[in-house]
């Protein structure tokens, strides 16, 4: 058990190294002069030189590599070109809304998707199964921002039951205001995620229901509800949890879009602002940050397997 945990933790190191290396090479190997591209069309030669200097592109590659590693090892994700603030500081300022949005989305998604997928699997071929499948295909097809604007148009502009945009921190405005402003972003962000997890849950539970031990449970006279909860879902847990983890990557992409649609001042907006300001170090820092979070969450999920499945123990 202990070795398993250590092994999983160590296994994340090469992945992180590859992410860091990839981000490092992306800047150095991109065709043309990245400094010139970042500086933009109207920049003077001095501007380009200054940016090159800031990105550290003047030095020999091994020195750059060394500095890059040393910098990351200190937990330094770089410095913004324009505000001159460390990227970690910028992230700290914008973390709260994104964190709460993501948390609400995950909770909402799991609460909706897992029961939906389970029922669809149990009632395979029924109208509810067809509805879930249709919903999941549609969920994979509607662009997240189009969905966002449609929800705003109907619920906020026409029916006027929810606020159009904005973010109210629960620590300043209280839980109710926070939730009122959160409802639409959470729905928007969770649709594709629900589609993914409901579909996966359906497939897994359907497979588990074919297993011999489900037949054994029925041979014992167990009720269908308990067969589903006690035998099917417990065995389907590992693949479902795995997809919840993999879906985090999908959600991070969605956060950028959702925050821009609903004007939420979180990390997603930070990305967008950096894109518009051509502030490459911020984009780079955020990539590293998000990848780190993703790897961390998936590590935790890996470790949760030991609780979910007694066979995984080494």
């Amino acid at each position: 058990m202990f070795f398993y945990i250590i092994k999983r933790i160590l296994a994340t190191i090469p992945v992180m190294v590859i992410v860091a290396l990839f981000v490092f090479l992306m800047l150095r190997l991109s065709p043309g002069d990245p400094a010139a591209v970042i500086a933009g069309d109207y920049a003077t030669t001095e501007d380009v030189e200054r940016i090159r200097e800031q990105l550290g592109l003047n030095e020999p590659i091994p020195v750059q590599m060394y500095k890059w590693i040393a910098q990351l090892a200190r937990g330094d994700l770089g410095t913004a070109i324009f505000s001159k603030l460390p990227v970690t500081t910028l992230i700290g300022q914008r973390l709260e809304p994104t964190l709460l949005l993501a948390l609400c989305t995950i909770i909402f998604t799991v609460l909706v998707a897992v029961p939906l997928g389970t029922i669809a699997a149990y009632k395979a071929g029924s109208w509810i199964d067809r509805f879930v499948m249709l919903f999941s295909v549609a969920g994979f097809s509607v662009p997240i921002f189009v969905l966002g604007y449609m929800l705003i148009y109907v619920l906020s502009m026409q029916l006027k039951i929810l606020p159009v945009q904005g973010y109210k921190s629960p620590f300043e405005y209280g839980l109710w205001e926070f939730l009122r402003h959160m409802i639409l972003p959470v729905i928007t962000l969770s649709v594709i995620y629900i589609a993914l997890i409901a579909r996966m849950t359906r497939a897994t539970v359907q497979e588990v229901l074919q297993e011999d031990y489900v037949r054994t449970a029925r041979a014992k006279g167990q009720s269908e509800f308990k067969v589903l909860m006690f035998h099917a879902l417990r065995n389907a847990a590992v693949p479902i949890v795995t997809v919840i983890g993999l879906g985090i990557a999908l959600m991070i992409g969605g956060v950028v879009v959702t925050e821009s649609v609903y004007n939420i001042p979180g990390l997603g907006r930070l990305v967008l602002d950096a894109v518009l300001a051509r502030d490459y170090p911020v984009i780079q820092g955020l990539i590293l940050f998000f990848s780190f979070i993703y790897i961390l969450i998936n590590l935790l999920i890996d470790l949760s397997y030991t609780l979910l499945d007694p066979r995984i123990r080494y």
Binding site: Y213, H231, R234, L308, D309
Partner: peptide, 15 residues
Amino acid sequence: AMVFQEPMTALNPVV
């Protein structure tokens, strides 16, 4: 009551 062919798969692996 019934006893099945494959005792590995007939028992729930996580219980």
